[in-house]
Write a protein that binds this DNA or RNA. Sequence first.
DNA 1: CATATACTGTACGCTATGTCCAGTAATGCA
DNA 2: TGCATTACTGGACATAGCGTACAGTATATG
Lengths: 177, 177
Amino acid sequence: MLDAAAELALEGAGGAGIDAIAARAGVSRTTVYKWWPSAAAVLLEGLLERTHDTIESPVSATTREALGDYLTRLIALIRDTPPGALLRGLTAASVTDQVVGHALINEWLAPRRAAAVHLLAEGVRRGEVRAGLDYDAVADVLFAPIYYRLMYAHQPLTDRLSAEIMAVCWPGIAASE
Amino acid sequence: MLDAAAELALEGAGGAGIDAIAARAGVSRTTVYKWWPSAAAVLLEGLLERTHDTIESPVSATTREALGDYLTRLIALIRDTPPGALLRGLTAASVTDQVVGHALINEWLAPRRAAAVHLLAEGVRRGEVRAGLDYDAVADVLFAPIYYRLMYAHQPLTDRLSAEIMAVCWPGIAASE
DNA sequence: CATATACTGTACGCTATGTCCAGTAATGCA
DNA sequence: TGCATTACTGGACATAGCGTACAGTATATG
């Protein structure tokens, strides 16, 4: 049943309501309410269920490459797979649903930010990254453009974006020689 | 009447419906529909009406200062005044309402991006900004963290954010000496 | 066999949207 | 002065989605 929920969560773009979810899962509406408080909650659980394995950071030669790879993979995930549309819908839902908002922060954003911060800290140890940076702010600057384009779609989410972000940001991150 | 619409647009946080808008304007629901296609459209027009004058870029000594000031002013606008909450709601609405989405891009985002691009171009002329940059990508990286925090509120929108963005990004923007 | 648990399906109240229509008030034109 | 146009009223209506309630069925567990 959790499987069914997850599947429909990803298939039904992001605007799926309780009715659609219940129907798609072959289950009564009442039953859905027994386990989740809202449609967004089901979709959120489906999203997290299916993207657990996309959190870990890659192993790359240099910190710069690792960060770039991480952004590229996030872009591909959001652009090419159902979780992208789902994340967009859930972000919209989070404006009026605080529970979803907190869950998004804690279960989606935070682990990925932590992975980036870990890469940065490792970079400092290796002497590739400047010491004394505000890691949280750096993580914001690195990730934000991706979510920005996800939400507004004023520019397409291309693979190039990752390189562009790194081109602008890396000089401010790299250890000065 | 446009005044009334604008006022209530800013007062009613962002989740105002047609009913609330009509009541607040002292006008029949039917009348609202005569002039706008949806609640979001009214709110959007109210938002744009009241923030026209916040688009222009400041005159500062250096390009770095000008960009920093611009970001600081945008942060203050979003954090301290009704347009912030309104923008948040409209962004959420834009996910399901393409008309609102395009209007947000063209009437809100684009002019501000253009102002930033103008500052960058001017900076190149003055020799303060590296030539050959992708201005659009740079504008994305500069602005995105603000909207990112507006939407997710995982971190507060503080005045410091502006300085943090500039600290990370400026080395990648500045002309290499 | 008895009981607890999970699920069904329908019905209900509620809110909000968007449309329709008959009637009223004000404006402008001949 | 008479007439037409335009803007607004307010109530009624259909539609849709949410969340809850309830009586009944199936399954498993002791």
